[in-house]
Design a protein around this nucleic acid. Sequence first.
DNA 1: CCTACCGATCGGTAGG
DNA 2: CCTACCGATCGGTAGG
Lengths: 212, 212
Amino acid sequence: MTKKPARARRSDGEQTHAAILDTAVRLASIEGLGGLSIGRLAQEVGVSKSGLYAHFGSKQDLEMSIWAAAREIFEREVIEPALAAPDGLARFEQLCERYLSYIERRVFPGGCFFAGMLAEFDARTGRGHDEIADDQREWNALLDATAAAAQAAGELDPTADLRQLVFDVAAAIQLANYYFVLFGNAGVIDQARSSIRAAISRSGGHPPHHAP
Amino acid sequence: MTKKPARARRSDGEQTHAAILDTAVRLASIEGLGGLSIGRLAQEVGVSKSGLYAHFGSKQDLEMSIWAAAREIFEREVIEPALAAPDGLARFEQLCERYLSYIERRVFPGGCFFAGMLAEFDARTGRGHDEIADDQREWNALLDATAAAAQAAGELDPTADLRQLVFDVAAAIQLANYYFVLFGNAGVIDQARSSIRAAISRSGGHPPHHAP
DNA sequence: CCTACCGATCGGTAGG
DNA sequence: CCTACCGATCGGTAGG
């Protein structure tokens, strides 16, 4: 089926590559990209520094790969499961719930990778800033579009202020992430769930029906 | 009046001390405490590295002084003006408005200093984590107590869920800070104002009366 | 993938 | 407050 040469299993090189990225993404979620050094990462993974450079040509290259790897994890853990729900209110609720679950399950040990990048790069100029600005725009656009679909389907009031809804939901989600990591208290996740339910309800949405 | 020896004006040393802290606090709000190096700070201020060590014995000492300086600025710009309003709903509204104004006026060039520290230290252990946890607890406790006073005074519904109110308000404020810095768009501050007004209104609070 | 090395910068100190 | 220096670590490279 594939044009690649036959290869029974992943080579050691591929395993090492994946192991480096896995460790790097976890470390970066805790200490930020600026707090990540090649030497420490190499030590953590158990290879030499030049071993890292065999896989990533430069720190910038590594940082871009980390970002891409984190995006893949976010897609897999949050976006894709939510997109399995039908467009509209059900998907909107799933986007919120999947995000909160991804925080609660500590998919990244330092909390949402992108929330970390947001705070690290919001006030700087350059690649990091532009990257996180794109990511945040995309996330908000997805929430916007999904809320709009819910409204168009009659699942939300035609007069509901969707900008406000999306802002309130994004704010609850964001604060829940930081406070969950800071205090290690799952209560704040439920607080956000309650906030989101209330915000949706204010916009005229009803809790999902359960078959008897 | 004072027991200190008479001194007509601030000595050069005091001026340098203040200049270092001012620059350090601004830099730290943009790049974080981890992104701040003694060498760069010295260069930015226009003194030698050992010039810095004449004022601050170590980087940890400097970091604690930066944190204290930032706290003073926050007290002056947000807390004190809000405490000028009578306890209760008026003060609650002023705490929100003063915070948003402090963001909007770019008191720190990198946005709220403590929002930066929150994201930098939430997932770590040690001094930074404990410090920001205390700060966040204190801020939320102030919002809690002020909302409770408003409720006790009959300015909010006796049945209003104050935890939810404070969470919603803190979330709106936080997101507004990050997005204002990231996108440089004042609209998000007004979005937060609108969120806060709505949250207060849901809790039974009424907009302040204006004398005719 | 390794060892061995590069110049630059880190936090910090000695001596004045 | 300065110059001059310390060992450690930074990102990165040479050569194998």
